[in-house]
């Protein structure tokens, strides 16, 4: 498996990258860590005419804080965010989910924004963005805009990003006091694509559960704090709404079952963090 031919451009700064992207549109792809894009190129599921490498652009590799947001620019590798001092206090959901994001060997290269751009329905970063109500910051030659995670992910590996836009950064809200967070995932092998992933955000008044790996994109539902059979019924309703499909890795029935059981245990863990 070898990629089809493409021109390769090392962008020196963001405006260069945006110029090339603006000229070539859908024929160009941004490459950062390459851990999602290279498999697509090797299997020739993507055949761009131009690859624009943004990893040489200074300043894109630094995680920042803007008030209550953790801002992760396009050059930040997954391993770098994972090693951020104090991340478990700043946003426990991210700290819990990152070790599940691919493998030690792929996290060292892959970027957070690249995972968002790829928009795999089972991926952890899109799931965390949706669960936390984070934002995706897009930029083209013409404009900058910020899109909520719920609006950004629009289908299986389909996003709201236009052909001349790149993801400049994604932003995750920091942990709020009085809120519990938990993440759980089931995969055949640690680090493989999730069969089902769950992220729970729980307060005294509400339970928010986001699920990856079942629908064509991560989906979030909010419930009042339920218990017992009321919670089981709510999760069952959510499981059926996600329109699970059979595939090589799991049946639709197993996925629904995991939404119910893993959903319940993830919510339980988040509630225990509250107490």
């Amino acid at each position: 498996m070898k990629p089809a031919a493409f021109d390769y451009i090392r962008a020196g700064d963001l405006s260069e990258a945006l110029d090339v992207l603006g000229r070539h549109g859908s024929d160009a792809r941004i490459i950062a860590g390459g851990q999602s894009l290279l498999p697509m190129l090797n299997m020739r599921l993507a055949k761009p005419a131009v690859l624009i490498d943004i990893m040489g652009i200074a300043g894109l590799e630094r995680v920042g804080r803007e008030g209550d947001l953790i801002v992760v620019p396009a050059g930040v590798r997954q391993a770098a965010l994972m090693k951020r001092p104090g991340l478990a206090g700043e946003q426990p959901l991210l700290a819990a989910a990152l070790p599940w994001l691919g493998h030690y060997q792929t996290r060292a290269r892959g970027t957070i924004c690249g995972s968002a751009a790829h928009a795999d329905p089972s991926a952890e970063i899109p799931l965390c963005l949706v669960a936390l109500d984070g934002e995706v910051r897009l930029r083209s030659r013409r404009r900058r805009r910020s899109v909520s995670a719920a609006d950004f992910f629009s289908g299986m590996m389909v996003t709201d990003k236009a052909d001349d836009e790149l993801i400049e950064a994604v932003a995750f809200p920091v942990a709020m006091t009085g809120t519990g967070y938990a993440f759980r995932e089931v995969a055949r092998r640690h680090g493989d694509f999730a069969i089902v992933g769950c992220a729970a955000v729980v307060t005294r008044d509400a339970v928010h559960l986001a699920v990856a790996g079942v629908a064509d994109r991560p989906q979030r539902r909010s419930f009042p704090p339920l218990a017992g059979s009321a919670l089981t019924d709510a999760l069952n309703g959510f499981a059926w709404e996600l329109d699970a499909r059979d595939d090589f890795h799991a049946t639709a029935r197993l996925r629904r079952d995991l939404v119910r059981s893993l959903g319940q245990s993830t919510i339980g863990e988040a509630q225990r963090c509250l107490a």
Binding site: G34, Q35, L38, N42, A108, R109
Partner: peptide, 16 residues
Amino acid sequence: QIDGQPARACLTLAVQ
């Protein structure tokens, strides 16, 4: 290893 960090050589371009 690329600059001391692990990497899949099959997911890396020679030009990188």
